[in-house]
């Protein structure tokens, strides 16, 4: 089943075009890696899909689960099942992780005409998902990302993703700033969460993460265009040859 269909997407920020016509089809059960050098438009693509204010789509279309994604406000995209694991998660002092994720979960449930989650079920769910990303329950009582280390913030993103069970998760450089152990934990979490009904976009600089999360497709983004697509061997080739040779292909 098609989850995401991007056709000739062009987008700009501050009157500068960053994406010059992206085409990408993602079906359920697939993991897509997007690689590329700094400034190639990787994070812009993630931001445009999630609906971050400040970006302007000038051309093209994006269909998400059969709906016109670009017309929807940010929270609606999330309710439909689009999740963005932030490169730089935001701190929200005074709001506990638990309260935050419960509010989010219930908003999404409400949209799908479901009752708010029962307190006991919620607790069980939190316990299961916290185990999955190996985070301490105490950590969940703390304010959202407030005073968290870089690695803790990234793990918290994966925890939230696990709680909300999105259709499409976009991991924006989730591996940056993670040590090898944390990287393994985060990857194992993703591997356990992926199934035949959801899909992943993994944005990364390095092949390293892709040793743990095996992508079905690898796309090279360069200067706002996908210049090459292939299977996981493309990532290896990239690691060996560097970006330069690939653009020159």
């Amino acid at each position: 089943m098609n989850i995401l269909s991007i056709k000739n997407l062009k987008a700009e920020i501050n009157n500068t075009e960053i994406l010059h016509g992206i085409n990408l089809e993602i079906n359920s059960g697939e993991v897509h890696a997007i690689m590329g050098p700094n400034g190639s438009g990787k994070s812009t693509l993630a931001s445009v899909l999630a609906g971050k204010p400040g970006y302007k789509v000038t051309e093209g279309s994006v269909t998400f689960c059969g709906e016109n994604l670009l017309d929807m406000p940010v929270d609606m995209r999330a309710k439909l099942g689009l999740f963005l694991a932030f490169q730089y998660p935001i701190e929200i002092p005074g709001v506990s992780n638990m309260n935050f994720i419960k509010t989010a979960l219930n908003e999404i449930r409400k949209y799908h005409n479901q009752e708010p989650i029962d307190a006991f079920d919620f607790y069980e769910l939190v316990k299961a998902k916290a185990d999955l990303v190996k985070i301490d329950q105490k950590f969940l009582e703390r304010s959202v990302n407030d005073g968290f280390s870089g690695g803790e913030k990234k793990r918290n993103e994966v925890f939230q993703m696990a709680m909300l069970e999105p259709k499409l998760a976009i991991l924006d450089e989730t591996d940056s700033g993670l040590d090898i152990d944390a990287l393994r934990i985060v990857s194992e979490g993703v591997n356990q969460l992926k199934n035949a009904n959801n899909a992943y976009i993994i944005i990364t600089h390095y092949q390293r993460l892709l040793e743990y999360i095996i992508p079905d497709f690898v796309h090279i983004l360069y200067k706002g265009r996908i210049v090459k697509s292939g299977d996981k061997s493309l990532a290896l080739q990239l690691e060996e040859q560097g970006y330069k040779d690939i653009y020159n292909d």
């Binding site: 999630a50 609906g51 935001i90 929200i92 509010t103 908003e107 999404i108």
Partner: peptide, 25 residues
């Protein structure tokens, strides 16, 4: 704006996002 966007991205609409931030504060 980034904080509002972050909370929106979890499925929470802007009014509720504001309320979360302010009550936390």
């Amino acid at each position: 704006d980034d904080a509002i966007f972050y909370i929106n991205q979890r499925g929470i609409k802007t009014e509720d996002a504001m309320s979360l931030i302010v009550n936390g504060y």
